[in-house]
Every structure is written in structure tokens, then in C-alpha cells.
């Protein structure tokens, strides 16, 4: 028994630091994973310029893809964008958020607009959309557009369902009137093309 105690004493070095050690590890891990990533993220540039004249595929589903063509001075918020799903663009004071939606089959444009009315309230409970008007892009894509109002911002919203009905591009933007005109210009550039062979 004495030998056993001696062995255990050597196997487990005594000391009141025993409980502090895992707490120290805890603090280091939390600091690294929360604070460390935060510092590194903020040290990297948050936006990347989009080349003027560039066409960007923002969605590609079931043989169709949606493209936007940018003019000068547009930036992409790289950190908060996800390819093919969600994009945040900026130009001047304008902040454009674009989401690729996959509505249930046979959802009408107006039903999607009603859905968008709810979706904009998720981020800002005071946000509301006006009734939509029909719009057609330069490339002939039909969609809906309206005004966005909230206690904090005014802006615009637009919705372009893909011709195959498999997805839709929804956009909301806030900013000064001049910059919102630039957003409208960008949205008018939207086009839906058949994806090349092998495209999803």
C-alpha cells in the first residue's frame, strides 16, 4: 500500500497548479480561435476590386447560369461572400447584397416577392418593400423591382427568376441615390445563359 502510494505520488506530481493548467490551455485556445482569427481577418483587405467590363457568373444551376457585367469602381466584399450563393458588392455609398434563391417548384414571381418582403425583415425588422413593378434587363431577363424602406435606410430591391425556374437572383441595395442608380445599372446587366456543357 505504501509502495502503491509512493508510485502514485511519482506518477502524478502533486501541486495546486493542476487545475490551472487546463484553464490556461482553455484561455489560449479561446483567445487564438476567437481573437486570433479576428485580428488576422481585420489585417487582410476586406474588399477586392472587380475589373471593369468583367462578367461574373453569380449563379449556375440545372444548365443555366446568371451573369452580371460590372463597370468601373465596383468592389466585392470577399470575406462575406460565398461563390454561387451570396455576394456583397460595394460602389461608393452603395452596398449591394445579392442572394441566389432556390424556391420550390412552380413558385410565381409575386410569391417570391412576398417571400423577399419577409427576408429583408430578418436583418432589419423595420425594412419593407413597396409593391413591385415589372422590369426587363438589357439582355431580356424578366424580373421585378421595388423600393426598400427602413428606419435606417432607403434603397432598392430586385428579383430575377431564372428561365428554367430552378433558381432566382434576389438583390437588395442601400446607399445614396446616385450610387443606387449605379446599382440599378448593374442589375440591368443581368443575363441568363445556358451553361456550357458540363456546367451544373
Amino acid at each position: 500500500m505504501v509502495q502503491e502510494s509512493e508510485r502514485l505520488r511519482h506518477a502524478r506530481p502533486p501541486g495546486p497548479r493542476s487545475g490551472w493548467f487546463p484553464l490556461g490551455i482553455f484561455a489560449v485556445v479561446v483567445a487564438a480561435l476567437v481573437g486570433g482569427w479576428m485580428v488576422l481577418d481585420s489585417a487582410l483587405p476586406s474588399t477586392a476590386p472587380v475589373a471593369a467590363g468583367q462578367s461574373m457568373i453569380v449563379a449556375s444551376r440545372q444548365g443555366h447560369e446568371a451573369k452580371l457585367t460590372f463597370d468601373q469602381d465596383w468592389d466585392l466584399h470577399v470575406g462575406s461572400s460565398t461563390q454561387g450563393q451570396r455576394y456583397r458588392f460595394a460602389k461608393g455609398t452603395a452596398d449591394l447584397e445579392m442572394n441566389v434563391l432556390t424556391p420550390p417548384a412552380r413558385t410565381s414571381e409575386l410569391e417570391l416577392w412576398e417571400g423577399l418582403r419577409k427576408v429583408v425583415r430578418v436583418g432589419d425588422a423595420s425594412a419593407n418593400l413597396t409593391d413591385p413593378r415589372s422590369v426587363t434587363s438589357e439582355a431580356g431577363a424578366d424580373g421585378l423591382a421595388g423600393q426598400l424602406h427602413s428606419n435606417r435606410h432607403t434603397g432598392i430591391a430586385a428579383l430575377f427568376p431564372a428561365p428554367n425556374g430552378e433558381f432566382a437572383v434576389g438583390a437588395t441595395a442601400t446607399g445614396d441615390q446616385a450610387d443606387l442608380a449605379e446599382v440599378e445599372r448593374l442589375l440591368r446587366s443581368i443575363r441568363f445563359d445556358r451553361a456550357p456543357e458540363g456546367g451544373s
Binding site: M38, D41, L44, P45, V78, G79, S80, T82, Q83
Partner: peptide, 15 residues
């Protein structure tokens, strides 16, 4: 933050 870092460092396609 880490997702944002991957997007910024590796590009949007990689992230």
C-alpha cells in the same frame, strides 16, 4: 472570421 480569411487568402472559389 476564419471563413473570411480563407476567402481572402485562397480566393472566393477556394473559400
Amino acid at each position: 472570421h476564419l471563413s473570411s480569411i480563407w476567402n481572402k487568402v485562397g480566393g472566393l472559389a477556394f473559400g
